[in-house]
Design a protein around this nucleic acid. Structure first.
Length: 543
RNA sequence: GCGGCAGUAGCUCAGCUGGACAGAGCAGCGGACUUCUAAUCCGCAGGUCGGGGGUUCGAGUCCUCCCUGCCGCGCCA
């Protein structure tokens, strides 16, 4: 609702200083100062060369609206605004009318955003780190949609190149072992147990596989294994409430010739040279720290070459913005991708890369040590089975992407008050419980024209203030690409609700008061439900 | 060595274009269930915002230097 206040401020500003051009920023001050505040006078004082208090006072005089109770100039020049009850009541009514549609914005203005996330190699199951990227990417997609963007979600499948062949060789080696044949396991092979399971299944599916020439067998197993693993990945993501609009195959870029074409295009522009038998892209011309190989001395294109083609393809599809969600260990990769886009004549600003920091797994405060050599990983599937999708998603979204995340498996499993997701869900369930109890006791509850002026308590006003912030939170998340702000908001809203619930009764004798309070609670419930939905977390009616 | 991220209460972390006395949860201590679910609530206690300089009317937030931790610097992806 900040935007409405900003609009009123804008009017007052124009009335006072018609020529002033300044961005109006509205904040939530400490509640003893008022409901909204702005520091616009400070910015103006720089331009007008007058004291901020003087400017603030003049603007305040012109700030009028039936919903404004009072306007005060405070401190060195803040303008504090206090709204009257009609303003707060209008918000509750708005929520009850719009329901889950409350908070829908149009700041995206129909602009197209593509968001690519997870994109894990189909050479093994998803691990916990992928889960964090999935939670962030998926929730961000939901939030951006809510903010009025046209959003497309994509998964880039690295189904070409060395790692897929290595998958085939790993399965082949395990097949040999299962048949009791001595064979050296490939040095960079995939050592996880899942490869043994795949090998067992492969032997059933292709009884003659080991009789075929090795190259052929490896190729068959590679493609078959890749498809199996991809299906498993998609299934895991589905259990994690994560979905995609499209899957884009790296292999298709090679097969369609797009990779070769992109190299020719860069060559024509003079950004490709040969050294040591390989072809190099002159990314240093666009700020990268060194040039990068696009075609190996063996004649094979690198992963990066395909990635250039992929990003060109994205640009050609006309998105206003493309978001790539990557693990933070890929940060050194950003300059070369942006360089390639610049070289091809695209504005690199159209690409935003979100780096997701590492997840540290803990067990009762102690780091979980995994042997990388033995291919030990903690899979997302395991995590979902242990702690559930709701808890895992919520915990992943309680940190900003830039921060490392300590994920303590025992705490997440414990399902106690240490686990914030239940706290928020419980608030939702409690409102549902009020409704149920009323039904059981034949108490009438009506949302029809509640008399909200009966909500006189400070706690009730606090709740209405918080509810009014929801659209601002959506806007904030969408602009910063930071979904974690929503989890904090929901926790705060739930906290206010629990406090209110403990102190006041909804099902009172006084029918008018009962209906007014229930209307407020129902508004809280609707916002929590929609908020959780944006995080991909369920809102149970009973707990 | 170069680069990225982090360094805020005992622990895990928030902190909205720089704003008005630095916030939450957990842990600790003390209270609240014949009344809409105690997975809850109320209260107390707890911090020279890693350190030094600087910019500003104002710095946890911006600049600079230093310290510590994690990560990256392949013709791997």
């Amino acid at each position: 609702m900040k935007s409405e206040v900003a609009f009123l401020l804008k009017k007052a500003l124009v009335a006072t200083y018609p020529d002033a051009k300044v961005q109006i920023h509205v904040e939530y001050p400490d509640k003893r100062y008022g409901d909204y505040a702005t520091n616009v006078a400070f910015w103006l004082s720089k331009v007008l060369k007058k004291p901020p208090r003087e400017i603030a006072t003049k603007i305040a005089v012109n700030l009028k609206h039936p919903f404004i109770e009072k306007v005060e100039v405070a401190g060195p020049g803040f303008i504090n605004i206090t709204m009257n009850e009609h303003w707060w009541h209008s918000i509750v009514k708005k929520i009850l009318t719009l329901k889950e549609g409350y908070g829908q914005l149009s700041i995206g203005n129909g602009k197209r955003i593509q968001i690519e996330y997870v994109s894990a190699n189909p050479t093994g199951p998803l691990h916990v780190g992928h889960g964090r990227g999935a939670a962030v990417g998926d929730s961000l997609a939901r939030i951006l949609k809510k903010a009025g963007y046209e959003v497309e979600r994509e998964y880039y499948i690295n189904d070409a190149g060395r790692q897929i062949r290595m998958l085939g060789e790993s399965i082949w080696a395990r097949c040999m072992e299962l048949q009791g044949k001595e064979v050296e396991f490939p040095e960079d092979g995939y050592r996880g147990n899942y490869v043994v399971d795949l090998a067992k299944e492969a032997l059933r599916e292709f009884p003659d596989i080991l009789e075929r020439p090795k190259d052929e067998a490896v190729e068959v197993l590679a493609q078959w294994g890749k498809d199996k693993l991809l299906k498993q990945i998609v299934d895991d993501l589905r259990s994690f409430n994560v979905s995609f609009d499209s899957f884009f195959s790296e292999k298709s870029l090679h097969e369609s010739g797009e990779v070769s074409r992109i190299i020719e295009e860069l060559k024509a522009k003079g950004y490709i040279y040969e050294k040591d038998g390989a072809l190099w892209f002159k990314s240093t011309a666009f700020g990268d720290e060194k040039d990068r190989v696009v075609v190996r001395a063996t004649g094979e294109p690198t992963y990066f070459a395909a990635d250039i083609a992929y990003h060109k393809n994205k640009m050609e599809r006309g998105y206003d913005t493309c978001i790539d969600v990557w693990g933070a260990d890929h940060h050194g990769y950003i300059p070369r991708v942006k360089a390639s886009m610049a070289a091809l004549g695209y504005n690199p600003e159209r690409l935003k890369v979100l780096l997701i920091q590492m997840v540290n797994l803990l067990k009762n405060g102690e780091p979980v040590v995994l042997s990388k050599r033995a291919g030990e990983i903690i899979t997302l599937r395991w995590l979902i089975n242990e702690v559930g999708t709701d808890a895992a998603r919520f915990i992943f979204l309680t940190r900003k992407c830039d921060s490392h995340l300590d994920f303590d498996i025992e705490i997440a499993k414990r399902q106690t008050e240490e686990n914030p997701v239940f706290y928020v869900q419980y608030a939702h369930a409690r409102v549902c419980s009020i409704k149920r109890t009323a039904q059981e006791r034949n108490i009438t509850l009506s949302l029809n024209e509640p008399d909200l002026s009966l909500l006189k308590e400070e706690e009730e006003k606090e709740l209405m203030r918080k509810l009014a912030q929801f659209p601002d939170v959506i806007e904030n998340c969408a602009k910063t690409f930071e979904p974690h702000r929503l989890t904090y908001y929901l926790t705060e809203l739930a906290s206010l609700f629990h406090g209110y619930y403990n102190r006041f009764r909804v099902l009172t004798e006084d029918e008018a008061l009962r209906n007014a309070r229930f209307a407020l609670c129902e508004a809280v419930r609707l916002v929590i439900k929609e908020g959780l939905n944006l995080l991909g977390v369920s809102a149970p009616e009973v707990m």
